[in-house]
Computed example of a mutant assay.
Amino acid sequence: MVNPTALLTARVRAQDGPGCELVQDGFLAEPVSAWTSLAFVVAGVVVLVRARREGHRAHDADTSDHRPSARPHPLAGYAALVAAVGIGSFVQHGPDPVWSDLAHDLPLLVVLAYVGADAAADLTGRRPAWWWWAGPTLALVPLILLAPRAGDLAQVGVAVVAVALTVRRAVIRPRQRRRIATALALLAVGGTVGTLSRAGWPLCDPSSPLQGHAVWHVLAATALVVLAPTIGLSSHPPPRARR
């Protein structure tokens, strides 16, 4: 039987958070959301392994120079950031220390800024500099700490810009359109399910083992894996449009 007091606590807490999962005593406050957060860690590992495999294939195909490249693969940083999203989310949904908001929001903000900066570099034909994504992220840290609601809105703004730039990238990269469309569709479905699962919304059931926010974790992590091959395309000129 569900403890009515715990259920009420879960609903109150859900008003301030993304989900409505029943809050548990112990190390994991929201077990389902905590464990599914690790989908981002798995996604980061998958991206890194695939990038290394592609790097080895490219190296084997290049018979003119067998020296290893000193330049790090652009997906290495991306993979690390994606994994960091999972760690930060696990911290918030698990032990939930006082600094959990920063642990959760900062990696997600960095990933959004990174994707947007990479798309902007592709659109302008330039290599992205680290400050393209680090600058906006650092500028928003005080907002996340001092005004969490405003920080959430700022993240939405960064997400909108990143999506717009990525859609524009699909225009100049016809071969990447299906991949980008698939990634955005996964994010859209995950975001819809997550939103409808907030406290007071139709899909919210605090005692259910199937949580909408957990679904968001899995679909968002999958979308980042699908999107990964588009990262770093600024080093390759886009195909010329047919006249």
Rank of each mutant, 00 (worst) to 15 (best):
Val23Asn: 02
Val42Gln: 00
Pro31Glu: 06
Leu22Gln: 05
Gln24Arg: 03
Val12Gly: 06
Thr5Gly: 06
Ala51Arg: 04
His59Lys: 10
Thr63Phe: 02
Pro18Gly: 14
Ser37Tyr: 13
Arg13Tyr: 10
Val23Gln: 08
Gln15Thr: 09
Val46Trp: 02
Arg11Ser: 11
His56Pro: 03
Ala58His: 10
Glu54Tyr: 01
Glu21Ala: 00
Leu8Trp: 02
Val12Pro: 00
Val41Gly: 07
Ala14Leu: 01
Gly19Val: 04
Gly17Glu: 15
Cys20Asp: 00
Gly26Arg: 08
Leu48Lys: 07
Ala6Pro: 01
Ala51Ser: 06
Val46Met: 12
Gly26Ile: 06
Gly44Tyr: 11
Asp60Phe: 06
Arg53Ile: 09
Val41Trp: 03
Phe40Asn: 08
Glu54Arg: 14
Leu38Thr: 09
Gly44His: 14
His56Ile: 12
Ala34Val: 03
Ala29Leu: 04
Arg11Cys: 05
Ala58Leu: 13
Val47Gly: 08
Leu7Asp: 05
Asp16Pro: 00
Trp35Ala: 10
Ala14Phe: 01
Ala6Asp: 15
Gly26His: 09
Val12Leu: 15
Cys20Leu: 06
Leu8Glu: 15
Gly26Cys: 12
Asp16Trp: 08
Gln24Trp: 00
Ala51Thr: 02
Val46Asp: 04
Glu21Tyr: 00
Glu30Asp: 00
Leu48Tyr: 13
Val47Asp: 09
Arg57Leu: 14
Phe40Asp: 04
Val32Ser: 05
Ala58Tyr: 06
Asp60Glu: 11
Thr5Ala: 15
Ala43Asp: 04
Arg57Lys: 12
Phe27Met: 12
Ala10Phe: 03
Gln15Phe: 10
Leu28Gln: 03
Glu54Gly: 13
Arg50Gly: 15
Ala34Met: 03
Ala39Arg: 07
Val49Trp: 08
Asp62Leu: 05
Gly17His: 15
His56Asp: 14
Gly26Ala: 11
Leu28Pro: 08
Ala58Trp: 07
Val41Gln: 05
Gly17Ser: 14
Ala34His: 01
Arg13Leu: 12
Arg53Ser: 06
Arg50Trp: 10
Leu28Glu: 02
Arg52Glu: 09
Ala43Lys: 00
Val49Arg: 14
Asn3Phe: 02
Asn3Asp: 15
Leu22Pro: 00
